[in-house]
């Protein structure tokens, strides 16, 4: 007898959950282990052949101690500054430009759009050296502004917002025009309410991208007092590699805020996935 398509047998279901649990262990397990290590006391072995999974005497002391060795909270604040500039810049800049390109007809629009598209075939690493030269000539080396500025409006986000504005039904826009709405009113009252999903995706990934970025801040920053978290962590790893508990605490300070941001906004992301909005 052919079973219905959506009703697997109980055994099949159990096998599926078993596989799911196994993959869960492989993907999330290492993070949990690191979290556990960051909470282990100095008396507990983290290197031994069979380190226990759960800390016996959980302590937050490692988080205080890592701040004694490197200014980890300053690094976190620096990362937050960089990520905030990136989010505000991209949300505003990409929305405005995306709206203009999708909804307004103007001389030169096709050329500009073509140039935006052309930048997509250029991996960021290819221009990173001359990007550094540009930032240097602006006098911004070794500053957070220098880290944040080049990515403050990403070309991909402009194109994503343009696509989102194009999907807004033209009738809505036409009705607003008949009512005598100006460009700003059309953007705020007709456009924005209909592109919230894409705007959320842009915000989430801009934040994560800026917070996680390593290569660019590594090139721009020299002064260890101005490091962002990723660069600071690498520095910590190089200098004090003897104590994995401290490194674990450091990695958790870099990792947990991202988890919180993603968890609170993930419904927008997966809704986008099911609507086929995410194509890589």
């Amino acid at each position: 007898m052919a079973r219905g398509f959506n009703t697997p047998s109980p055994a099949g279901k159990a096998a599926r959950y078993l596989l799911l649990a196994l993959v869960l262990l492989l993907t999330v397990g290492p993070f949990l282990w690191q979290l556990s290590t960051s909470l282990k006391g100095p008396g507990e072995d983290v290197w031994s052949r069979t380190p226990g999974f759960l800390p016996h005497e959980p302590t937050l002391a490692n988080y205080a101690k890592v701040a004694d060795t490197v200014p980890v909270w300053t690094y976190a604040a620096n990362s937050l500054v960089v990520a905030s500039i990136a989010v505000i810049g991209n949300a505003a800049g990409a929305t405005l430009a995306g709206f203009a390109l999708a909804r307004l007809r103007f001389c030169g629009a096709r050329l500009v759009l073509g140039l935006f598209l052309a930048t997509l075939v250029l991996p960021g690493e290819v221009t990173i050296v001359s990007q550094y030269v540009t930032v240097r000539s602006l006098g911004l080396t070794d500053t957070l502004a220098g880290v944040a500025l080049p990515g403050a409006i990403a070309m991909l986000n402009v194109l994503l917002m343009r696509t989102a504005f194009q999907a807004v039904p033209p009738d809505l826009d036409a009705a607003a025009l008949v009512d005598g709405a100006n460009v700003w009113q059309r953007l705020v009252h007709v456009g924005l309410p209909n592109v919230r999903g894409m705007l959320s995706v842009v915000v989430i990934f801009t934040f994560i991208g800026a917070w996680d970025d390593f290569l660019w801040p590594l090139i721009v920053l020299n002064d260890p007092g101005k490091y962002t978290l990723t660069v600071g962590l690498q520095y910590l790893n190089g200098t004090f590699s003897a104590n994995p508990r401290l490194i674990a605490a450091g990695t958790m300070i870099a990792f947990l805020p991202i988890v919180v941001v993603f968890a609170s906004l993930q419904r927008f992301f997966f809704r986008g996935v099911e609507e086929g909005a995410v194509k890589g």
Partner: peptide, 26 residues
């Protein structure tokens, strides 16, 4: 006529300064 350019302005500036120029300069 300049309204669209006002909106697209910042992005176009970024396109020129942080994308096109670095490509040429490389």
């Amino acid at each position: 006529w300049f309204t669209p350019w006002l909106l697209a302005g910042p992005a176009v500036l970024w396109l020129a300064v942080f994308n096109l120029w670095p490509a040429v300069n490389t």
